[in-house]
């Protein structure tokens, strides 16, 4: 079982919260603690101003959706969605009214009589989501619910999810390992690394201003490019191949070595220099991948392995010498401890 370090985290009430971290970073454990499936060895879990640490799971009014499609195997779609209401002894007419409404919302109306085992993966996961929605739980935990779905369905449900839950007024916690997913879902994000909460805040703020190198790494795919640069007075030097003006945020800091982090889409290779404030460094192409509408180029720049991501299809041969344009507006600076400097 993943060990969770001392963690102080207060999720935004009635909002869409994302837990972002790599596999085994403790997302599931944190969710299990919130759900009450796991007891913390120390510390407390509070919900809506109440200490719920010792409240058993079935009394916490939560719903959970998993990566695997979990439904009652022998039930119809209707009975599956109705199951939390049946446990709560809601009367029949109310059950059918609420199930119909939720089924409508998730496009399951035509499938209500079908056996869940005969449904496609997407339909099974919709059923599981409907079960979580119908309960009108105060806390909804979604543990990588879209990971096992195919690309198209994932896109579609990812768009629908925040909308579905915004109406319910529930606090939603959504675990994922994909930075892109966190950005698309919006709301608030907590980044997790090796059982530690690294940063929590509005998703877009965390993406723009990660508090440290770890957080920048978690929140970037392909991984953020890093290199060591040195600052003296008002200028920054990158291995003698490029110099640029020190950004305002860094001006008052002491001179010395800093780590620069630059996201792959802030590196361009195309002939013309990138717009705006940029410098050019020499690089060697290691590998070129084309992904539909974009190109991902793996580079060697001053002994660092870098990745550039740009739209349009660019073809390079391996070993080719190229000019790498760094968009300086996209540079993040970290001190020797890895903390971001703004």
């Amino acid at each position: 079982m993943t060990h969770i370090h001392t963690t102080d985290l207060a999720f935004e009430d009635s909002a869409f919260n994302v837990l972002l971290g790599a596999t085994l970073s403790g997302k599931t454990t944190l969710m299990r603690l919130m759900a009450g499936l796991e007891k913390p060895t120390s510390g407390e879990v509070w919900f809506s101003g109440q200490n719920v640490t010792s409240v058993p799971v079935q009394k916490r009014n939560i719903a959970m959706v998993y990566q695997e499609f979990i439904n009652y195997p022998n039930f119809s779609v209707f009975e599956n969605i109705a199951s939390p209401l049946r446990v709560a002894r809601v009367n029949q007419s109310e059950v059918s009214r609420r199930v119909q409404a939720i089924a409508e919302l998730l496009n399951l109306s035509d499938l209500l009589d079908r056996d869940v085992s005969n449904l496609s993966g997407g339909q099974q996961q919709r059923t599981a989501l409907a079960r979580a929605l119908v309960k009108e739980a105060s806390l909804v935990l979604l543990d990588e619910p879209l990971a096992n779905l195919d690309y198209k369905l994932r896109e579609q449900l990812r768009e629908e999810l925040p909308r579905l839950f915004s109406k319910s007024g529930s606090t939603v916690v959504y675990a994922t390992s994909e930075p892109e997913e966190a950005l698309m879902l919006g709301g608030y994000t907590a980044t997790l690394h090796e059982g530690r909460v690294v940063q929590y805040g509005k998703t877009i703020d965390i993406y723009r201003k990660p508090c440290n190198l770890e957080c920048a790494k978690i929140f970037s795919h392909p991984p953020v490019n890093i290199a060591t640069v040195s600052k003296s007075n008002n200028s920054i030097s990158f291995d003698g191949v490029a110099d640029w003006l020190c950004p305002d945020s860094l001006k008052d800091n002491r001179d010395g070595n800093y780590t620069v982090g630059i996201r792959p889409h802030h590196l361009t290779l195309s002939g013309a220099a990138a717009n705006g404030y940029s410098v050019t460094v020499p690089g060697t192409v290691q590998l070129a991948e084309i992904s539909g509408s974009g190109s991902v180029i793996h580079l060697q720049v001053q002994g660092n392995d870098w990745i550039s991501e740009s739209s349009g299809i660019h073809q390079f041969s391996i070993g080719e010498q190229v000019d790498v344009h760094m968009n300086l507006n996209g540079c993040l600076y970290f001190d020797s401890e890895g903390n971001a400097v703004y």
Binding site: Q58, M64, F75, V87
Partner: peptide, 27 residues
Amino acid sequence: IPDAYYQAAKIDGASRWAVFIWIQLPK
């Protein structure tokens, strides 16, 4: 049977007997 089934049942507040009849036996 994946562990998630038992967790889901627990969250629903299903009894031991219900878990046997509706999850374990069909599986």
